[in-house]
Simulated scan of single mutants.
Amino acid sequence: MTNPYKYCHFLSNPVAKPPCRMINAAMYGFFVSACEQKMQQYVDATLNTVANDSVSFNVLGSVCLLTFTDIEKISSLTPPFSEQGWMQETDIIIWLPVSKVVNGDIAHLYWYPAFISVNNIYALINGREVWGYNKYLCDYDMPTPANKTSRFSISLPCFDVFSANSKLAMHELLSIEQDNINTSENLLDNLALFSKRVADFFDDEVKGVDFSLIKQLFEGVIHPQMDQILFKQFPDGEGTSAVYRSVVHSPSVIKKIHQLKLLTNNFTLDVKSVASFPLHDMFGIQLGSQAVHLPFYINMDFDQLGASQVLPA
């Protein structure tokens, strides 16, 4: 899709240019049981609206990844935006593992941030406008050096039920509690060990995909880059047509890993029924309390590169 217009970076416009550098990104990750059919329906309603006869996108297995990431410092690497300042950002994301299928064969594996919420408006505007992240604002709890809570949670301004009388209010969408806080953590000194453990777990979930590809997908979470695929669209003034719609790719290039560990604590995820964000309908994540799988922690620096168009070609 070609566009004859150059983007206007006018005064007061908060949109900056990528790439941007993330320093001390402290990520907690939890693999969550979901429904392959419902995740595929979500992919069909987003990524595959831009698919064609030869290229489409398929979900891998019946597990998604839930992450809470506190990023100490983010700034653009492109002048003059690199001289304007930096910000802290926290994001909570549900990632779907997705394959790009070309003429019936798997051509590439991606992570699709299908749900993402952040804690500041600058991150929201830049994420949506430049990359196409479907970002939303939230309040949250998660462990940080300054906050030793063992609880994770996310609350959003939304509707808990849809009705003519519903008023927008803050509602908790999900929370994670540690069941045995005093247990030890399994420190890892080998990145390949982490990716192999996760790939072994996914091998039972994903059928018809070569094990080496699965391992490659999860190595990409931490080294050398995490390939993200996004659905970017903007509506017209009536909200009925898209003035822009495409599938884009943006790599997260890992620059340094400060720490990586598997968490041996038992964690329980509790998912609430919220009409604005129906996680059960979106991804098949069960409502109520449930276990999570292979919880991990990683602290890293990475660069988020600009987004390049995948489809339409």
Rank of each mutant, 00 (worst) to 15 (best):
P4E: 09
N13Y: 01
N13Q: 09
P18T: 02
C20F: 14
R21W: 03
N24A: 09
Y28L: 00
Y28T: 00
F31W: 13
A34C: 09
C35M: 01
E36K: 14
Q41N: 14
Y42W: 14
T46R: 12
N48S: 09
A51L: 03
N52G: 14
V55D: 05
S56R: 14
V59D: 03
G61Y: 07
G61R: 09
S62C: 07
V63P: 02
C64G: 10
I71H: 00
I74R: 05
F81A: 00
F81G: 00
E83C: 08
Q84T: 04
W86N: 08
W86S: 14
Q88H: 14
T90C: 11
D91H: 13
D91Y: 14
W95T: 02
L96G: 04
P97L: 01
K100G: 06
D105G: 06
A114H: 07
A114S: 15
V118Y: 03
V118R: 04
N120V: 03
I121Q: 09
I125T: 11
I125N: 01
V130T: 14
Y136W: 09
M142K: 12
M142N: 11
P145E: 06
P145G: 03
K148W: 08
S150K: 11
S153G: 07
I154N: 15
P157F: 06
F159K: 08
F159P: 00
L168S: 04
E172H: 05
S175L: 11
S175P: 00
S184M: 12
N186Y: 11
L188S: 10
A192S: 12
K196F: 06
D204L: 08
E205A: 11
V206Y: 01
V206C: 06
D210F: 02
D210V: 02
Q216T: 11
G220L: 03
V221R: 06
Q225L: 08
F231K: 06
K232N: 13
F234I: 04
D236R: 02
G239S: 03
A242M: 15
S250G: 08
S252K: 15
V253Q: 13
I254W: 05
I254G: 06
Q259C: 06
L260P: 02
L263M: 15
N265R: 15
F267A: 07
T268G: 02
L269F: 01
V271M: 12
V271N: 02
K272G: 02
K272F: 07
K272C: 13
S276A: 12
P278W: 09
H280V: 11
H293R: 05
L294Q: 12
L294P: 01
N299K: 15
L305W: 06
G306S: 12
A307W: 09
S308A: 12
